[in-house]
Design a binder for these strands. Structure first.
Length: 532
RNA sequence: GGGCGCCUAGCUCAACGGCAGAGCAAGUGACUCUUAAUCACUAGGUUCAGGGUUCGAAUCCCUGGGCGCUCACCA
């Protein structure tokens, strides 16, 4: 059974699935695995006609801690300030930094067919007072929480540490304050200059009621409180959080021992490695990660994540490899199998389910999608390199009937992807290079018969119209005259122009070149001894 | 130092206690009109190593090795 269906089958009752994200910057491809996993689990429940809700939280009360996207003077002003208060660095299109970047990932999710039932903003949840009772319980249990941190994670907070982060009344920072006292109604806090390396507190000390959005709980406590507030039953977490003594362990313990609530089921998931390395914006792999998303359409990106079980790391190396064309091929094979067509080789378990959940639209007509004509990616990449080729026309011819609107969309989507792939990743052998500056060295392999054939083509080609079909006909006809097998005839042409013994349909390739050049080259390659 | 994952054909992976398999790559061949397509065929393995359990182990257990990620600040 497909892993998500298995999970759905093993849970009883109504499910609340939750995930959340801090809107501190742009999303890279690797960080999309979590959302895709969460969405797919939700779909599995929904497909089994189970009651399920997907909630997605925006942790916009978290302090600003990434200075990469701020201007130098903004760094001093805003580091440590809640993201919901930091202005939008991209201009004035959004109310805040948090709103801007949250919109970026909401849009990204939507493009992948991920549609949470509810997006909630933690600044609003705290502001509404919904978290007040948890905050009170946590503050009352400060000693227990300090002990949990010590026991579970070996993190030692000072004895006067309390599980709350106050927004400093003086400077507005939340990342630099520490609560050192709690009298049951008000907290005493200090905004320390040296509490964090990445932000400088103003030194203010004060007393304030922490309720109604004036303070938030630290991450692990906050997480446990959300589980109870929303009745979360399943929350997948990346391996960075799922490690022993990590965030998930701490929050689990806090849920049980402080809030008296059984934590939700975890679905730990591994990451996506690009070329054997984890993705990181700081190591320059971030750029390539962003490009990955440009080259892989949503359906194939979903497949990339979903064909492996969540707890398996995914190795993906698109640079100079055929990993991307093969991802398309796999996708097409699944479609073919789902449509009931014969496919070669083995299929993954429940291949039709895998195909269905890789579709962007959860409501899509799976049978219709599977039946749609899908031109092979590598074939398109090749055609796309020949000037003057009408892709839709060619694909229509190969399909044998006119394309539906959806099929036309697929062609266009793949055309764009193929372009991007050729520019960013394609190995040299996938690139078409006409040797304009001289007969390629590979032409030395030509034998006398092939050379005579090339020479004879000069008049044969001049005798017909300069279009693909006519040239292709002449190439075949001349080969027949010379009793040269078609394969060897074509090889001669490819060697003369491309320096390799295979290539795209020769007639159409030649029409992309000027007649003068073609004739001249045939003359050079056709004379005995050239390149020998 | 702790945790998790991985190690099976050249590459990517499947098989999860019952005959080690696929895709791609490679090789051979077919093809007078899709010629980087399509089709047929071939080859490729001490399943990281060692031990154990079992009628039977790639699979379970133990020991060791290698690779990768991750945590031990914050979120």
């Amino acid at each position: 059974m497909f892993w998500a269906d298995e999970l759905a089958a093993s849970a009883t009752g109504r499910q609340v699935i939750n995930d959340s994200k801090t809107p501190s910057g742009t999303v890279h491809v690797g960080s999309l695995r979590g959302p895709v996993v969460v969405d797919t689990i939700t779909r599995a429940f929904r497909d089994a006609e189970r009651d399920v809700e997907l909630r997605y939280g925006v942790d916009d009360l978290d302090p600003m801690d990434a200075q990469a996207l701020l201007t130098p003077d903004a760094i001093e002003q805003f580091m440590g300030v809640p993201l919901s208060v930091v202005p939008d660095p991209a201009g004035d299109c959004h109310a805040s930094y948090a709103r801007h970047f949250a919109q970026v990932f909401i849009d990204t999710f939507a493009g992948l067919g991920i549609r949470p039932d509810t997006y909630y903003w933690m600044s609003e949840v705290y502001g509404s007072g919904a978290m007040d009772r948890y905050l009170r319980t946590a503050l009352d249990a400060a000693g227990t929480i300090r002990e949990i941190y010590r026991r579970v994670a070996n993190v030692n907070h000072p004895d006067d540490w309390h599980p709350a982060m106050v927004i400093c009344e003086s400077c507005g920072r939340i990342g630099t304050t520490i609560v050192v006292g709690w009298d049951g109604e008000r907290v005493r806090y200090e905004c320390r200059p040296d509490l964090r390396e990445w932000a400088k507190g103003c030194g203010h000390a004060g007393e304030v009621s922490p309720f109604g959005g004036r303070a938030k709980m630290p991450y692990n406590v906050d997480w446990a409180a959300k589980w109870d507030l929303f009745g979360v039953t399943i929350e997948p977490a990346g391996k960075d959080l799922s490690t022993r003594g990590g965030s998930r362990d701490r929050s689990d313990a806090i849920a049980r021992e402080v809030f008296g609530n059984e934590p939700p089921r975890n679905v730990p998931y591994e990451f996506l490695n690009i070329g054997g390395k984890k993705m990181s914006t700081s190591k320059g792999l971030g750029a390539s990660a962003a490009k990955v998303a440009d080259v892989i359409p949503p359906e194939q990106l979903r497949l990339l994540f979903l064909r492996s079980k969540p707890n398996t790391a995914i190795e993906f190396d698109p640079a100079g490899t055929d990993a991307i064309p093969r991802l398309f091929d796999e996708s097409d094979r699944l479609a073919a199998a789902t449509a009931g067509r014969e496919v070669r080789g083995e299929l993954p378990l429940d291949h039709d389910r895998l195909f269905a959940v890789s579709l962007v639209d959860p409501e899509a007509d799976v049978a219709a999608e599977a039946a749609a004509y899908r031109p092979a990616f590598s074939h398109l990449a090749l055609l796309e390199q020949i000037p003057g080729v009408d892709l839709v026309e060619r694909v229509t011819a190969e399909k044998g009937s006119s394309l539906t609107d959806r099929e036309r969309e697929l062609v266009e989507e793949r055309r764009v992807a193929a372009r991007a792939w050729l520019e960013a990743y394609a190995p040299d052998r996938a690139r078409l290079a006409v040797h304009y500056d001289g007969v390629p060295a590979g032409a030395a392999e030509l034998d006398d018969l092939q050379r005579s054939y090339l020479a004879a083509l000069i008049s044969a080609l001049q005798a017909v119209e300069w279009n693909g079909e006519a040239l292709q006909g002449a190439i075949f006809a001349t080969a027949k005259q010379f009793e040269l097998p078609a394969g060897r005839a074509f090889a001669a042409l490819y060697l003369a122009f491309l320096g390799r013994d295979s290539g795209p349909r020769a007639g159409w390739l030649l029409t992309a070149l000027s007649p003068e050049f073609v004739i001249a080259r045939l003359g050079e390659a056709g004379s005995a001894g050239v390149g020998a």
